[in-house]
């Protein structure tokens, strides 16, 4: 390798590293900001002469105390998890068979239907909550978490169906047909072959649906009034912002605690996703 080529190689290597570093900082910064704000004293937070990136005064647990003792944060977390798990379950039950059927439906119909289903996802909740509130009241579900369990699949199912359709389409038909010849029904082939291979797609749907549930605000605000039935996304801004007074430390603590489990699961899943373990299936 000549000196010029070596320089080029070195420069490319550094550039690569710089880009990765920039993206890492970009992704990690919100977490750093949430953690440091959670433990900062208010006097440290509001003094403009302080360096905002470090602790200028000793850290405190006061904001966490406010979050857990002066609000119902623990209950909201539980409510969010309850709705999240149920919605994820419902989404999987509906979207997995729907995505599979659309993926294997021959001709242009499958594609058009898939796009149509995806388009329903694009109708914003700020429009839908008015008609949906009639449905919720009609069923007597107002002020109950079950109203959210009912309504949330209206946006998780279309997107998940569309996403899973892509995953199922990528699985060669030969694999299912081989399983059907090897002694299984179509359902058996689906369970034994298609599901294990699409695990990355199913995990994506789980995480995606759960995240959507956690961040949903409009429906949760309009359908539920009792504080005890709040989810995190409504409870935290409602109780930690008093007029123009922001409880920054507790707000950040509330966000951080809710986002960490998802971040951990997401990292675990990213590895599975990248592994690309369908390689070698055919050819």
């Amino acid at each position: 390798m000549g000196p010029l080529a070596r320089l080029k190689y070195w420069a490319a290597d550094r550039a690569h590293f710089a880009i990765v570093l920039a993206f890492s900082i970009f992704s990690a910064f919100p977490f750093y900001w949430m953690i440091i704000t959670t433990f900062k004293r208010n006097s440290d937070l509001i003094n403009r002469d302080n360096n905002p990136f470090i602790f200028n005064e000793p850290p405190t647990l006061e904001h966490l105390r406010v979050l857990f003792h002066d609000t119902l944060y623990g209950i909201w977390l539980w409510n969010t998890a309850f709705v999240g798990v149920l919605v994820v379950g419902i989404t999987l039950i509906l979207a997995v068979p729907a995505g599979y059927a659309l993926a294997r439906l021959s001709g242009r119909w499958g594609e058009h239907l898939g796009i149509g289903i995806f388009l329903t996802y694009l109708v914003p909740p700020t429009l839908l909550f008015i008609p949906l509130s009639k449905v919720v009241v009609g069923l007597g579900l107002q002020d109950s978490l079950w109203s959210l369990v009912l309504v949330y699949p209206s946006f998780t199912v279309p997107f998940s169906t569309w996403l899973l359709m892509g995953f199922f389409k990528a699985i060669p038909r030969d694999l299912e047909e081989a399983a059907m010849i090897d002694g299984y029904s179509r359902l058996g082939a689906f369970a034994k072959i298609v599901m294990p291979i699409s695990i990355a797609g199913i995990l994506t749907v789980v995480i995606f649906s759960f995240t959507l549930v956690m961040q949903e605000f409009v429906y949760a605000l309009t359908f539920i009034s009792p504080v005890k039935q709040y989810t995190v996304s409504v409870g935290v801004p409602t109780f930690l912002v008093h007029g123009d007074v922001y409880f920054w430390g507790s707000l950040m603590a509330g966000c951080f605690i809710a986002s960490v489990p998802i971040a951990i699961v997401y990292n675990f899943f990213v590895d599975r996703f990248i592994a690309g373990f369908t390689v070698g299936a055919v050819k």
């Binding site: 030969d174 047909e177 081989a178 059907m180 291979i197 390689v279 070698g280 299936a281 055919v282 050819k283």
Partner: peptide
């Protein structure tokens, strides 16, 4: 009869080995 009841075995052009 469904394929599984026909007592046949098939080798596909792609081999269709189960990747997992």
């Amino acid at each position: 009869m469904p394929p599984r009841a026909r007592k046949i075995a098939m080798v596909f052009q792609s081999y269709a080995l189960y990747p997992h």
